[in-house]
Design a protein around this nucleic acid. Sequence first.
DNA 1: CTGAATCCACTTCGATACTG
DNA 2: CAGTATCGAAGTGGATTCAG
Lengths: 124, 124
Amino acid sequence: MHSLEPELNPYLQGCPTRRILDLIGDRWTVLIVGALADETRRFSELLRSVDGISQKMLTQTLRAMERDGLLTRTAYLQVPVRVDYRLTEAGQSLRAPLKVLEDWSIEHFADIRRSRTEYDSLGA
Amino acid sequence: MHSLEPELNPYLQGCPTRRILDLIGDRWTVLIVGALADETRRFSELLRSVDGISQKMLTQTLRAMERDGLLTRTAYLQVPVRVDYRLTEAGQSLRAPLKVLEDWSIEHFADIRRSRTEYDSLGA
DNA sequence: CTGAATCCACTTCGATACTG
DNA sequence: CAGTATCGAAGTGGATTCAG
């Protein structure tokens, strides 16, 4: 076990760990990790896989993930251009935690929907 | 194992499961779950515990969590007013998944920071 | 003490048009 | 095909003020 800096506390403003939470909290990042789970995919494939994402957001999110070392980008200089994206080991390691959250979502989805309905009907 | 509606697919636009991801992705929700982990807390205690949150956001987030059935709100009619918040079972059940993510963050924090630094220095 | 309500600066994101 | 650039609409969130 390696020691951690005691300053790493997400409850403190400005702590860098909050940036990590932002990363995980991003909807598109989560979906792209899933879309790239096992296989390398092209830009256009991702655009189709992740329904509703705009070209702009896909590019933007892929850049951020590349910057964070979650995936690699490989461009082939040919015509037409071809660019492949694949998860790094770090990116792969994110799948398990996300899976746990996904399972939780599925398990509690009905409960939450019911709770919201009740809450809203009472407040109406 | 109970069967699930096949329509529940976060990769499709408009799927309600995306709302669940939003819930989890919210920074303040995550921190509040942590702050309420074991104990009931008052509004003002939460305001102090979660550094950097504004009164507005605390109220807003608490309302959303109450609506989602993650916590209960108990108001005591006295002067001055006292309001307690505590996690429901559903709220408690969220702790484990979030802990997994927290562990991941801690484990990969240094890697991500390094990756960002390299990426930025190359792009400069 | 625990909010609700308002104002406003800032960010986000989709749509569109253009490029190598 | 895989972007980049730009614009405007919409949402977010902080600060402040008022209220039960």
